[in-house]
Design a protein around this nucleic acid. Structure first.
Lengths: 219, 219
DNA sequence: TGTGACAAAATTGGTGACAATCCAGGCCAT
DNA sequence: ATGGCCTGGATTGTCACCAATTTTGTCACA
């Protein structure tokens, strides 16, 4: 149990929201889990009022579901919606990849290739966590290089909602072997300053993610 | 001044949020305008607490900007960000157009063509408001037919933020002559069940919107 | 054993009061 | 004049309290 820092300093609503977001991302809080205001207030050392506004924020973000007089729960995202989210992400990340391909500097290209090499090594060594790290590094760097902050914010919000499926996926044996060449293709296209190719490669990658999600839920 | 319905019924936070959203969309509240909690509470007949939570929601949605101890203002979206928003919308609406092209029924296709004819007529008659209505009808219908609710929600949120630029644009003389053929091209591609063509036409349309926005701010 | 009614506990919703903070304007010294 | 400083008013932030509602537990009765 993640206990709140028992310092006397007041914990603001934004901080509570961040903690809950974190807890949902890490799987500490699972879908449909009830979020009792008093409990959260105690756990994080915040007042109930702050917890309330934090839950309000998270509701707008789509991470939490609130029912009048019945309290808040971690929202459970159905498979169908998760696939929609991946489709939207595909469109947005393809945009980012294309822009990144237009704007990338030589130094950044080298950095990107280094990420690619790290991912290859991770697959060779069967190091799941290193591969996952490379994965987030890659997507994160493309978004950063693209300079599209609006798209970045949207992608982050959507990814947070679909986190449950992300999990199942990366836990799947052999998934990295499948996705590695897709990732390398993205890197190649971006480093070659080929926007159209980068977008295509990114869409292909996320189409594969979509398929894999469907398969991973067949059990 | 839109006064609150002076009924004794309590006005909920969600309702206040809706009213403020509406006021921003319609231009009743302009960028950087201060939103004083007590005033809003009085105007809408709600308690200050409800106004507060409404402002919290709108802040997460990006319509309102809040500074600690300094209150809330209508967020002013800079040109640069508005262009980003249009780019993101292009990616998302292209996705919707493509899906709509895959899923549209014959009846819906006829409805879509009717919208196209109405827009042609509006341009012929120089009826600005009819054209604007056709415009929203068209985009709305494509999104509805596409069945992409996640994308739809995201588009709505983004469009609400960029509403100021939308205005200047449709007020511009000759804008409809420029955009009409683009709209017709989208309709044609969707009705021809050509997803790739529909996406391309939509991207072309929004690229033109982007250019027009840049031009409309050169004054 | 199961079911419905009812009371008690738990939880959320809402409001008012008060504290903290910011802002405008006046005032004084330089 | 100009700049620093103070004070009063306006506004926001926070909390404690109570009302409303839901949920849980118990018990009588079929």
């Amino acid at each position: 149990m993640a206990t709140g820092t028992s310092t006397g300093t007041t914990v603001t609503a934004a901080e509570v929201a961040a903690r809950i977001r974190e807890a949902i991302s890490s799987g500490d809080l699972v879908p449909n889990q009830r979020l009792v205001e008093a409990d959260l207030a105690e756990a994080y050392g915040a007042s109930r009022g702050h917890v309330r506004t934090a839950l309000g924020e998270l509701t707008v973000e789509g991470l939490v579901e609130r029912i009048q007089n019945r309290g808040a729960r971690v929202r459970s995202v159905p498979l169908e919606e998760a696939l929609e989210i991946v489709e939207v992400r595909a469109a947005l990340e393809a945009l980012c990849a294309a822009r990144a391909a237009e704007r990338i500097t030589d130094d950044q290209a080298e950095e990107l290739r280094a990420i690619g090499r790290a991912m290859e090594a991770a697959v060779r060594d069967r190091d799941q966590s290193a591969y996952a790290r490379g994965n987030t590094d890659l997507h994160g760097m493309l978004i950063r290089v693209s300079g599209q902050r609006t798209a970045a914010a949207t992608i982050d919000r959507l990814r947070a909602q679909a986190v449950r499926f992300q999990y199942r996926l990366s836990a799947r044996p052999g998934r990295s072997q499948q996705s590695l060449p897709e990732h390398l293709a993205i890197i190649e296209a971006v480093c070659a300053r080929d926007p159209e190719g980068a977008a295509r490669a990114m869409r292909a990658h996320l189409a594969s993610v979509s398929e894999a999600i469907v398969e991973s839920t067949r059990d």
